[in-house]
């Protein structure tokens, strides 16, 4: 299961499983139904790289991120961050580790506390973790953080509702940076923003990565943005890893039929290109994670499925160096 040279791996996720019980267990007993949000996912992130995690809604990409952040307790599996398995830590130890793993959320409107000013939001984590114990120095540091994310120092006294969407997302990024993390989980950080602002934020994230040597897990559904920002890309479908490889390989030569369909579904802003494109439009919809199909979870929608796909769950195996695919036909 070693996916990369052990020395430069910052985070390794091994056989991560997260099942949510729903209903059931009530008056009439019966085993509660289980949503298999994440079902045996493994990957590693190297220090300083960006791993894109893509898939459609309900594929488990966000839950994977939340498990790494320990916002959800994994049902089973390991989350090894800088050599320590986070799932075995005590609450006190977790609180310390959290400094090093931060998160940027999708919705810049609901991810900032409406009752706190920008200054308070940035000050608090530094105070709590004792990163900058002295109050005056902290105030200075807050201004620095604002400058780093491209905001004016005069914003410290503002409340979130006084800011535009792009500005709020910058505050969210500054808050994530306040604890000096080494890994940031970016959960759809640009998909709620206006198109003209998205590029600003993507550039900001890239610049910050260079400046502070950050590692990103970039969770998104927009394949064009993921291609732009990621070094490697993992594609998830219905709680499972479908394909994981280098950016270039994935976009030039996708091996999993789902990845191929996903790529061909992305609209390109050019009518001429659109007219020339060969597209595979997938039939059907993503099945419910409550009752995933047997065998390969993708087989009911797969254009190249054979009988064997209905029986065996395909391993996410390495077909080429650094290119893993969960498809027996790849």
């Amino acid at each position: 299961m070693t996916l990369a040279a052990a020395d430069d791996v910052i985070l390794e996720v091994r056989d991560l499983v997260k099942h949510f019980p729903v209903g059931g267990g009530g008056l009439f007993g019966g085993p509660p139904a289980v949503v298999k949000a994440v079902d045996g996912v493994s990957f590693a992130i190297r220090r300083g790289e960006t791993l894109g995690l893509v898939g459609e809604s309900g594929c488990g990409k966000t839950t994977t991120g939340r498990c790494i952040l320990l916002l959800e307790r994994p049902t089973s599996g390991q989350v090894i961050f800088e050599g320590r398995d986070l799932t075995t830590l005590s609450p006190a130890e977790i609180r310390i580790v959290r400094r090093k793993i931060q998160v940027i959320f999708q919705d810049p409107y609901s991810s900032l506390n409406p009752r706190m000013t920008v200054g308070q939001m940035l000050d608090e984590p530094m105070a709590v973790h004792g990163i900058v114990p002295e109050r005056k120095a902290r105030r200075e540091r807050v201004r620095e953080l604002l400058a780093v994310v491209g905001l004016l120092p005069s914003m410290v006294g503002r409340y979130p509702h006084e800011l535009s969407g792009g500005q709020r997302q910058r505050v969210g990024i500054a808050r994530a940076l306040a604890t000096e993390p080494s890994l940031i989980i970016c959960d759809e950080p640009v998909s709620a923003l206006d198109v003209s602002i998205q590029a600003q934020i993507v550039n900001l994230l890239e610049n910050l990565q260079e400046q502070f040597r950050l590692t990103y897990l970039f969770v998104a559904h927009d394949l064009s943005v993921v291609r732009h920002i990621s070094d490697r890309v993992a594609v998830m479908y219905l709680g499972k890893m479908a394909e994981l490889t280098d950016r270039a390989a994935l976009y030039a030569e996708p091996l999993h039929p789902y990845t191929q369909a996903l790529l061909s579904a992305v609209p390109i802003p050019d009518p001429d290109v659109e007219a020339r494109r060969q597209r595979t439009v997938l039939g059907g919809e993503v099945p419910s994670a409550l009752n995933p199909p047997p065998g390969c979870v993708f087989h009911p929608r797969c254009p190249i499925a054979i009988d064997a796909c209905k029986g065996a769950v395909p391993d996410c195996r390495e077909v080429r160096a650094g290119h893993r695919v969960a498809c027996i036909r790849a």
Partner: peptide, 25 residues
């Protein structure tokens, strides 16, 4: 022009940085 240039495209080579429209809405 700015909108079209700020969006990364799958059919074009990856750029080092995107070209955003400056400022706020």
């Amino acid at each position: 022009l700015g909108l079209l240039r700020s969006v990364p495209r799958l059919d074009e080579p990856k750029r080092e940085r995107l070209d955003p429209i400056q400022g706020q809405p």
